[in-house]
Amino acid sequence: MTNAEAARRLGLDCLCPGEEREVSGGYAGDLLSWVMGRAGRDCAWITIMSNVNVAAVAVMAEASMVILAEGVKPDPELLRRAELEGIALYSSPLNAYELSWRLHEALL
């Protein structure tokens, strides 16, 4: 399943389409070092963090996409960096639990 396909199936709002990547799992977390050390490659990363450092962590962890949960709005600098680095950045009014559950179903 590609990141764009995952976005469609989870009903996400597109902030930055980014590069097309395969999504093979998910990870939810907001402590950046924790996420970077533990999130699997090619995951959809669900977070409520919205500052520019999210972009660097997404690149380092090789996440396929970033989903901002609970209607969180990205800082302008995050959006700019996502466009620059080709990061797929989406948002949703759902919380991390609900998004994880939907992602799991989409990945089955």
Binding site: D30, L31, L32, S33, W34, M36, G37, M49, N51, N53, V54
Partner: peptide, 15 residues
């Protein structure tokens, strides 16, 4: 900003 989890050096050691 999401830092200060106390994972910096442990992550470096692990990786």
């Amino acid at each position: 900003l999401g830092f200060g989890a106390g994972m910096g050096l442990p992550n470096m050691k692990r990786c």
